[in-house]
């Protein structure tokens, strides 16, 4: 099977690149598009460090064959920062010490974004459920749960017209 040209909307921009047969979305993002925020922790769907949003849903990019999402829309951590401004999830992760080595952070933030997009007022259980596919070996998870709750609170506050 020859390589093929794949087209995706990545962080709002249409991108085209050549993908070898069976190439994963993770490899294409990192190697073809230079988007390195998503990480490879296991390459087997077990750690969540490669999580990106595909049409709004969190997916383990290491398990997604890129041709299966062709023409879809992909959001990575690079697309969360706009014009150098951090969003609520990012700033809450800093303020709540939810990042240590930082290797899991990209995946954690992406699942948090997906959660808050569909549920602006999650319970702690909702947060724990949302990050249950993501491994963090440094923080012990508690600061991450607190950061996501705090991000939700900040986002709700901003949504209230003054």
């Amino acid at each position: 099977m020859p390589s093929q040209i794949v087209s995706l909307v990545v962080n709002g921009e249409r991108r085209e690149f050549i993908a070898a047969p069976g190439a994963t979305l993770l490899a294409c993002l990192r190697e073809s598009l230079g988007l390195i925020a998503a990480k490879r922790g296991c390459a087997q769907g077990a750690c969540g460090t490669c999580t990106v949003l595909v049409d709004g849903r969190p997916e383990a990019a290491c398990l997604v064959a890129v041709e299966t999402v062709a023409d879809g829309s992909v959001r990575t951590l690079e697309g969360v920062t706009s014009g150098g401004e951090l969003d609520e999830v990012q700033s809450a992760f800093i303020d709540c010490f939810a990042t240590q080595c930082g290797f899991c952070t990209s995946g954690m933030i992406m699942v948090a974004e997906a959660l808050l997009d569909r549920n602006p007022d999650p319970s702690e259980d909702d947060v724990i459920e949302a990050i249950s596919g993501n491994v963090c070996r440094c923080t012990g998870y508690r600061p991450i749960v607190i950061a996501i709750m705090e991000a939700a609170r900040r986002r709700r506050e901003q949504a209230v017209p003054r």
């Binding site: 990192r30 230079g34 390195i36 925020a37 998503a38 990480k39 490879r40 990575t76 951590l77 690079e78 969360v80 920062t81 951090l86 990012q90 700033s91 992760f93 800093i94 010490f97 990042t99 240590q100 930082g102 290797f103 952070t105 990209s106 933030i109």
Partner: peptide
Amino acid sequence: VRRSDARGHVTGRTEFFEDVA
């Protein structure tokens, strides 16, 4: 005390060894 590397971590700009092109 804010971690000096936290901004890089939350924006995905921290360069781990495998991120080197």
